[in-house]
Write a protein that binds this DNA or RNA. Structure first.
Length: 598
RNA sequence: GGUUUGGUAGCUCAGCUGGUUAGAGCGCCGCCCUGUCACGGCGGAGGUCGCGGGUUCGAAUCCCGUCCAGACCGCCA
């Protein structure tokens, strides 16, 4: 037997027991007459003691052992002469009577379980060593606990987990597909699923009224800290449900996960419309850990306000702007000129592209000082400060320009200010639902999108998303105004999940395809099997999918999802450890009848 | 495809405006050390300064190109 107990559990109450332990050598401390070895496994560290006086040969044997060797020992648990209160096992040590070297190790390229930062590239290349680190192990353990919480919650509600195929058919909607050549069907390709969307709807037709799956999905798009080409979704679908049923069920699931992993309780999740999210946060996934809502001084649509008007001399920047909006940074009036210049640089960076930043300080003494004193009187500024509901000590930041661009820039500025003011704490969670998304989006011809998709409507989700029944009559007259019966769950500015009630009515479905500009042929070719299935009595249904990796990283308080994936890919979609993707042999190419062009 | 930061010893990094033999801490190797737990002491080895070209009497340092990595934009639910 390799072990009778693990390295993390021996305490005072085990004294005098004889135990067998196996594990890795974290470090050996050689003091001359005696040697201590910290033995590590998944569960913890136990100190092993060797002494020349106890057993000379054994002690000398122990001196030869290096870091990360795998050893097995047998010995008696004894009380330590000098204890270590920092360790769970710090009161005891094992007086080794038998030592077996199970395997040696060459010196690892980086230390395990020390505080030194190691380059991610190196950690990726030696992922199996990095996995020995506590931090990475704890993250994967958290992931496991979350998956247990999900399965148990859904199982209790009668959901069943069904596996769906991975080799499926390419459909042009959404992201790029990963494709797999077929050897038996020359010249044809499978696609890897971007999500099991169609299968879960077919399962509804098949009568599995509550389905879920924790499942790998694939998208051939560029990577980010929170985006991998293969990632895991918690994919769910239910029959005979309305939006409220889905929201309630999965709000419950998230509540359950947070209770189980972090012992955090949530009140009911607020619901916010997409329109409000854009109006108040400039963003469809607002971070609501802090307030700092947008205030409109000028709005192209509802322009009853004249707040942007100057009483001294016209301020052309505001006069000419489509939109003038600002935020109130509570308690930031003490910002220095230098700090404000930095904020100006922040909004001017190319990706945000604002042309400048207007600010005014509402000082503690009640005076108001702005960057546009030439144009606006004290009375103007007082009006503003009322509109912003600001108090002495606050800083108001205002952007002007084209509506969408300005919204986006102010949204980023809001998040930046939230971070600077310490309002985005990792251990505070603000979940909410965003509802009533637009159903359709107009594709401009000038984007670098597929030419075939330009100059027509496309669905913001997928083409089976139901419109709100109240908006159906707008499909012909004003497609842009049609809202979807769709919902996203957002926590701390992270979109953790999204879904919709699906269309189960053939007439409505055809109407949508028509609006999207699909011909009957295209529809039949791409989605025929689903539409055929719908001819045989599709129940009303809807569902949701959560980004499992993102949910884990959110709960773990980390921005990158990579450490919650045992073997992730790098920025370029490469696996640094096995060095994939890689070339394949001539024979393999020939079998597939594939020729590479240059 | 774009923007940006970086690449110097096994690891983390310093090396300013060009100037003898490129440094530190950790790790590694050797010797010493009987209560350490970031053990300690003494000594030692270890470098194509990512790669290629250019400027210069002289390049880790300046310029051009290129490769690699990270973050972000485009893209992506």
């Amino acid at each position: 037997m390799y072990r009778t107990i693990t390295c993390g559990e021996l305490t005072k109450k085990n004294i005098d027991e004889t135990v067998t332990l196996s594990g890795w050598v974290q470090i050996a401390r050689n003091l001359g007459g005696m040697t201590f070895i910290d033995l590590r496994d998944r569960y913890g560290i136990t100190q092993l003691a060797f002494n020349l006086d106890w057993d000379k040969a054994l002690c000398e044997e122990a001196r030869k052992i290096g870091r990360e060797w795998v050893i097995q020992i047998e010995g008696a648990v004894i009380e330590r002469e000098s204890k270590n209160p920092e360790m769970i096992t710090g009161d005891i040590e094992v007086k080794v009577s038998k030592l077996t070297i199970l395997n040696q190790s060459i010196t690892p390229p980086f230390p395990i379980n020390t505080d030194t930062d190691v380059n991610e590239e190196l950690r990726m290349k030696y992922r199996y060593l990095d996995l020995r680190n506590n931090t990475l192990r704890q993250k994967l353990e958290l992931r496991h606990r979350i998956s247990i919480a999900i399965r148990s919650y859904l199982n209790n509600l009668n959901f069943i987990e069904v596996e769906t195929p991975v080799l499926i058919k390419s459909t042009p909607e959404g992201a790029r597909d990963f494709v797999i050549p077929s050897r038996i069907n020359q010249g044809q390709f499978y696609a890897l699923p971007q999500s099991p969307q169609i299968f879960k709807q077919l399962l509804m037709v098949g009568g599995f009224d509550k389905y879920f799956q924790i499942v790998k999905c694939f998208r051939d798009e560029d990577l980010r800290a929170d985006r991998q080409p293969e990632f895991t979704q918690i994919d769910c679908e239910m029959s005979f449900v309305e939006q409220q049923d889905v929201l309630q069920t999965f709000e419950g699931m998230i509540r359950n996960i947070f209770k189980y992993t972090l012992n955090v309780d949530f009140p009911n999740f607020p619901k916010m419309t997409y329109a409000d999210a854009m109006k108040y946060y400039g963003n469809d996934k607002p971070d609501t850990r802090f307030d700092m809502k947008f205030v409109e001084l000028k709005n192209p649509l509802s322009d009853t306000s004249t707040l942007y008007k100057s009483s001294l001399q016209p301020f052309s920047v505001f006069e000419q702007a489509e939109s003038v909006i600002g935020i109130c940074a509570t308690g930031a009036a003490h910002y220095t000129r230098k700090q404000l210049d930095e904020l100006t640089e922040f909004v001017k960076q190319p990706k945000l592209g604002a042309s400048g930043l207007v600010y005014f300080r509402y000082a503690e003494d009640g005076t108001i000082k702005s960057s546009v004193d030439k144009f606006f009187s004290e009375a103007d500024l007082k009006n503003w400060s009322q509109a912003f509901n600001s108090k002495p000590g606050d800083l108001i930041l205002i952007l002007a320009g084209p509506k969408e661009k300005t919204q986006k820039a102010l949204s980023e500025l809001r998040l930046e200010m939230g971070s600077k003011l310490g309002l985005r704490k990792k251990n505070v969670f603000a979940p909410l639902w965003i509802v009533d998304f637009p159903l359709l989006e107009w594709n401009e011809g000038d984007t670098n999108l597929l030419a075939s998709l330009a100059g027509r409507w496309h669905s913001k989700h997928h083409p089976f998303t139901s419109p709100l029944m109240s908006d159906v009559q707008l499909l012909k007259s004003n497609p842009a105004e049609v809202r979807a019966n769709a919902y996203d769950m957002v926590i701390n500015g992270v979109e953790v999940g999204g879904g919709s009630i699906r269309i189960h009515d053939k007439i409505l479905q055809n109407q949508i395809f028509e609006t999207l500009g699909f011909t009957k042929e295209e529809t039949q070719n791409q989605f025929g099997f689903l539409l055929n299935a719908f001819e045989y009595g599709a129940p009303p249904h809807g569902g949701i999918a959560f980004g499992f990796d993102r949910l884990c990283s959110l709960i773990g308080g980390v921005d990158s999802i990579r450490d919650f994936i045992a073997f992730p890919k790098n920025n370029m979609g490469r696996d640094m450890m096995m060095d994939s993707p890689s070339n394949i042999s001539e024979e393999q190419l020939n079998e597939l009848k594939i020729k590479l062009s240059n």
